[in-house]
Design a protein around this nucleic acid. Structure first.
Lengths: 393, 393
DNA sequence: GCATTAATTCAATCAAGTTGAATATTCAAG
DNA sequence: CTTGAATATTCAACTTGATTGAATTAATGC
């Protein structure tokens, strides 16, 4: 299951073909379950025999389960298969400057365990120690064997591999400048690790358990400390040449007369700053939730002011990426996001104005405090279903 | 060489593995020529034997040529291989409302033939007739056999498959609404056909013969009738869920006090409209070239006015796609593009401000009248070197 | 000259998908 | 109730194409 990363993987061979096909089959089971072998063969273009062999292997590895036979029309009723939720688990960890959020998720995308850990600082050793503890706690609490943990998805603020971009409110972690986070975590946690930014992780979370289960190309606008964009194209994460694609928060937009970075209008920090003007402190999602249910006028004013630049951003994303839909989510209360979506005035000049749309132009994604941590876990699950495509030579 | 498109191609098998590896090897020869088999094996991760077999096949098919041995250090000197320019040709055709531009290009990306054909109208039959004539003329003039023509790349204005977006200056072709252009051209020209928009075609042209030979992820801002964005990620064209990604012309930008679509500031139509205010008619690239060399004040004023919104657009593209670089090109004179690039004031808030950049943030691409037609041909050549990645299940 | 190094080829092996025949189970028609 | 068509599944033989290891060839370094 694990590829050798020491030399370039560009050419293909039988082994990699199998890996690819295995993940194709697993992906079909996930999205069409319960489903039979013959149907997967038809959908994938593989021969029934090939599918049959792979299915046998997946049952053997406890990734999927038999679920009776289904008779539809003539012929031998097809044996149906479904995902085995308990066939594998992934741990997601969101690292923030002063806290760590963790979530354990199974193959079905169901959350089995969550935790919040305070951090004294965000130095690598501190984080590694806390992560190691959470790993033991999560697997212990759920009675999971080491080999059932497919990997750990770590969500950390980017941008990665560059300097000089820490604008106002850009909360970077200290002590990580000269460290390769993947290698660092893999060696300390002895487990395969992926590292991503919050927006991308949240986007993938929607594929595993949320709105995007059957979507292939979509974008996710994520309310974090700043504002991020997760981009999924043909089921693959788009990271850009240096891993920093989707920095939509830096984009300049217009709000009334002011021209400013998008994230200074629409982000967790933007709300906090706005509310602070009126002496209201925002600590976490719950504070916002409460203010919203109290119909706070200042919060309402902020929503109005954020809607205009956000509408521009949506138009931008539509015209540049032409996604099936745009998902809006992040560490914000549901109702607040719904309200915000209701206030959007989407531009007419957009390729998204198709006559035969099956989805709204903007929908709300999963939200709340754990979104990013769940996304981290989702990255690992997603990897089991659809391999990363190899860079071409 | 040709895949069956009648059923889904998601699963892989030995045959497709070979196709993939063949194109990987061909791609390495193109970019590293002259190069030996052992080196390709090292670079690609394939065994020397596999590479050897594929190289033999490619020599057989006249795609590559032996080019002596090269001794570097000890050991048996490696036989070097280079692309055989005359091993294959591609025809590119740009269809505009009243004219058709055609270019024949060989595997090396060298232009062998160009033509301009006036069209009475842009109805499918008219275009097909003209295309068929050009195909005969081009192959005849260059003494090329039918089997040496790898395909035809047609460049047509998008957006495809949708209605209601024909804004001002959006010159769509008439009579193409209910037609699948690929199927139409393939049946009338009896040759494999790709259809793309001008920006994407121009982007790929840079990979074959221009600035992007060794780039994998980059964007191309194309001055056409409107303004388009061609997006290449990991050597693959990004088209979006419905084929309309990169409609950057529709994006709203700020210029002084006005907020307006980008293409109303920066596009061929924008220059034409601007100059028309002063009674100067712009017919083609040459007219612009002449005005520029005369230091026309109105043209200079337009350049100034276009630089600001274009700078914003560059920042946008950098932050959303994180490309290695952005190429600016299109149906404009070289000097004018160079001047425009010089006038850009690129935003500071961009992930492109890396300390260790090897390329400028914006460079000029191939330009001039034939850019799009050459791009069409490049699409076909590119396909021979790097197969399209298959959509995941 | 002789040992070392590197590229290439040959032959054998192996992994994985495909094909076609055989078998099982259901529905539908007579 | 029987028979035949349709569908799913399995078995075994086949095919493609990559990998592996030994043998061959031609350079370099001492």
């Amino acid at each position: 299951m694990k590829l050798d990363r020491s030399r370039p993987i560009i050419g293909s061979n039988a082994e990699r073909t199998r890996l690819h096909n295995r993940q194709v089959v697993l992906g079909f089971v996930r999205r069409h379950q319960p489903v039979g072998r013959a149907e997967i063969a038809r959908l994938s273009g593989l021969s029934t025999q090939a599918v049959s062999n792979i299915i046998a292997e997946l049952v053997d590895d406890a990734f999927i389960l038999e679920a009776g036979r289904q008779t539809k029309g003539r012929g031998l009723p097809a044996v149906q298969y479904i995902l085995n939720g308990n066939g594998g688990y992934a741990l997601g960890i969101e690292v923030r400057p002063n806290a760590m959020f963790s979530a354990l998720v199974n193959l079905n995308g169901e959350t089995c365990f969550t935790a919040r850990t305070e951090l004294a600082d965000s130095m690598p050793e501190t984080v590694a120690m806390a992560a190691s503890d959470v790993m033991l706690e999560a697997t212990g609490a759920s009675g999971i064997g080491r080999n059932q943990l497919l990997g750990i998805g770590v969500v950390m603020p980017g941008p990665f591999g560059q300097i000089g971009l820490s604008g106002p409110g850009q909360s970077e972690l200290e002590g990580w400048d000269d460290i390769d986070p993947v290698a660092f975590f893999e060696s300390t946690l002895r487990c395969s690790v992926l590292v991503e930014n919050d927006a991308t992780a949240a986007a993938i979370a929607e594929r595993i358990s949320g709105e995007a289960k059957s979507l292939k190309s979509y974008c996710y606008i994520y309310f974090g400390a700043g504002l991020g964009l997760g981009i999924v194209v043909d089921g693959q994460v788009m990271r850009g040449a240096f891993g920093n694609a989707g920095e939509i928060g830096h984009v300049l937009v217009q709000s009334g007369a002011r021209q400013c970075r998008l994230e200074s209008f629409a982000s967790r920090i933007a709300v906090r700053n706005h509310m602070a003007q009126f002496g209201i402190a925002i600590g976490n999602v719950d504070d916002l939730s409460q203010l919203y249910s109290q119909n706070n006028v200042h919060l309402s004013a902020w929503l109005s002011s954020a809607a205009e630049p956000l509408s521009q951003a949506v138009g931008l994303v539509e015209n540049l990426f032409d996604p099936e839909t745009i998902i809006l989510g992040g560490a914000m209360p549901n109702q607040l996001l719904d309200d915000l979506i209701g206030r959007l005035i989407l531009p007419d000049a957009s390729v998204a104005r198709r006559p035969n749309r099956s989805l709204p132009r903007v929908i709300r994604g999963a939200s709340g405090r754990m979104t990013a941590a769940l996304g981290g876990a989702a990255l690992i699950i997603h990897d089991a279903f659809s391999p990363r495509i190899v860079a071409r030579g």
